[in-house]
Design a protein around this nucleic acid. Structure first.
Length: 207
DNA sequence: CGCCTTTGACCCGCGC
DNA sequence: GCGCGGGTCAAAGGCG
């Protein structure tokens, strides 16, 4: 199971869940180990939208996900709704009933350097870099101590956009990809045609 | 030729 | 002050 310390390097982080519906991606929903994901204020059916988890769901197969889905408070919502809602949550921190709750972390001493907002999530996937609709350029790779998998560093290729992401595999379960985003995009996702079909539901989700 | 990845060097914050 | 480790830089090479 997820080690809470995994997220301890962030002053303030949020974890959101999503599930790629009707795609050829191999990724499955990440494991929520806490009830920190949230219930959106307005729910609307939209199979092409990201899903937000309101309580832990640990599917191992797609079919299993479908069955555990029934009766479980998992909702889909329109992309635009999700976008605004998540933005509000990031700004306001949400509340007990609505919003994205910060991960409960041990106290971290203050840093002088102001960090961009970050959030991370886990996805079960064969590929390291999930198609989130944006174009990324790799600028570094490091072997992190006591881990067997390297950590890769990516930057958004858009001019003046300073968003970065880190990608690494979970030490305890190499099937799981940990993706950490830092900063907010100042532009829309790239609109490369052909290959965007599979990732269309991600668009706007990550700003 | 332009854009990308690779990879060793470098930088810097932190703990001792 | 020093060493360690994570993050970034940038030169070199690959690829379409």
């Amino acid at each position: 199971m997820l080690n809470q310390n995994l997220f301890d390097d962030q002053d303030r982080s949020y974890q959101l869940g999503f599930f790629p519906v009707n795609t050829n991606l191999t990724s499955l929903p990440f494991w929520c180990n806490k009830t920190f994901a949230a219930i959106p204020p307005s729910l609307q059916e939209d199979d092409d939208a990201p899903l937000l988890f309101s309580e832990p769901v640990i599917p191992k197969q797609k079919e299993e996900f479908t069955s555990s889905f029934a009766g479980s408070p998992i909702f889909s919502l329109q992309k635009s709704t999700a976008n605004h809602w998540i933005n509000d949550c990031m700004r306001n921190g949400g509340n007990e009933n609505h919003g994205v709750l910060p991960i409960n972390m041990k106290k971290i001493k203050s840093r002088k350097k102001v960090r961009e907002p970050r959030f991370c999530f886990k996805t079960m996937s064969d590929v390291d870099v999930l198609d989130d609709g944006y174009k990324w350029r790799k600028y570094g790779q490091k072997i992190v101590k006591n881990t067997q998998h390297p950590r890769s560093y990516y930057r958004c290729t858009q001019d003046n956009c300073r968003v970065k992401k880190r990608v690494e595999r979970l030490q305890e379960d190499s099937r799981m990809v940990i993706t950490t985003y830092e900063g907010r995009h100042i532009h829309s996702p790239s609109h490369d045609e052909e290959d965007s079909r599979a990732s269309s539901q991600f668009k706007n989700f990550f700003w």
